[in-house]
Design a protein around this nucleic acid. Structure first.
Length: 313
DNA sequence: AGCCAGGCATCAG
DNA sequence: CTGATGCATGGC
């Protein structure tokens, strides 16, 4: 196996505070209920997930060791067998990307310090958007979230992984189920999917899995389109409406000007800005006012509405 | 028990 | 275009 250099099944590295632009709060970010916090597991203060890096699945255990204002992360990666030291370098770049550690949060705070949005800042300093590691998973996950509580939605995604994904056992003995490829999920039938309890979302999930598997919905192509074109393409798909499309565009493809408007964001936007706005008006309002930060605005509004709703005025 | 959940498709006006 | 309704099911 190991040829020459010693290659342990476990490597450790740090992401230093000078490699993170502005404040960061890992647990706020992962537990804020955004579309891509779903997969992470918490084990006494640290969080882990797994994804394919360098053609093999790696488990990464991330622990915040600095403060929110001067954040640093301690990362342990675990492979299935041995690890190359190059994998640690790639894992670091990967984590920097999906945790969006280069987003200039201070700039966001200062740019809107006189906006009513600033009301939400003190409660959630260091809260960052996340970027999905797997766009297809992000799309199915977004569809699965509709008209369901966060708890139920996370459960559905986890059941899809356990039922249709691939089981992996890492060198530390832990088990993980990968999210199925579009092809694998497209072969599921209604009755086989029913064990995951998707409810009426079943036909949406199967429809989208088939479209992607057959190449009729090309997620890579979408990421190369303009936001408007990608969005209108998505809206033609049965099961994808404005909110699901924006969630996927934001979390799955990284269009930060997408501002998903759900019941929470809609309610809080009306209380903070204008009493009578339709959902559609709220969408355009957020996009016009916050531009490339609209996704962040929606995230802060969402999280604020859910955690501080009693104190809103 | 009954209402609501990170909505959407469909149909009526 | 806007507004009302059914949807499948769990969480609280």
């Amino acid at each position: 196996m190991a040829e020459g250099c010693p290659t342990p099944g476990k490597l450790e590295f740090a992401i230093e505070s000078n490699e993170i632009r502005g404040p960061f709060n890992l647990s706020e970010t992962l537990l804020s209920g955004q579309t891509d916090g779903a997969g992470w597991f918490e084990v006494d203060g640290a969080f882990w997930d797994a994804e394919k890096i360098d053609l093999q699945f790696i488990k990464y255990i991330v622990r915040q060791i600095g403060t929110t204002d001067r954040p640093a992360l301690n990362v342990t990666i675990v492979g299935i067998n041995a690890l190359q030291s190059k994998t640690a370098i790639d894992a670091k770049a990967y984590l920097t990307r999906i945790l969006r550690l280069n987003d200039d949060l201070e700039r966001f705070y200062s740019e809107f310090k006189n906006d009513r949005l600033a009301k939400t800042f003190p409660h959630h300093i260091g809260l960052r958007l996340m970027l999905a590691s797997n766009p297809f998973e992000s799309l199915i996950s977004s569809i699965s979230s509709q008209n369901a509580s966060i708890k139920r939605w996370h459960r559905l995604v986890q059941l899809i992984k356990e039922r249709f994904g691939q089981k992996i056992t890492f060198a530390d003995g832990s088990n993980f189920y990968t999210f199925p490829e579009a092809r694998a999920l497209s072969k599921a039938t209604r009755s086989r999917l029913a064990v995951c309890r998707p409810g009426y979302r079943a036909e949406y999930i199967l429809n989208v899995a088939r479209l992607v598997a057959e190449g009729n919905l090309d997620l890579t192509a979408l990421s190369n389109m303009s936001y408007e074109d990608a969005r209108s393409t998505l809206l033609e798909v049965c099961g994808i409406g404005p909110k699901v499309a924006d969630c996927f565009l934001l979390y799955g493809l990284g269009f930060t000007r997408a501002a998903p408007v759900d019941v929470w964001v809609h309610r809080i936007a009306q209380r903070l800005y204008r009493k009578h706005m339709t959902v559609k008006q709220t969408e355009t309002f957020l996009q016009d006012r916050f531009g490339r930060w609209a996704g962040y605005a929606a995230l802060y509004l969402f999280h604020y509405a859910r955690t501080c709703s009693g104190r809103v005025r």
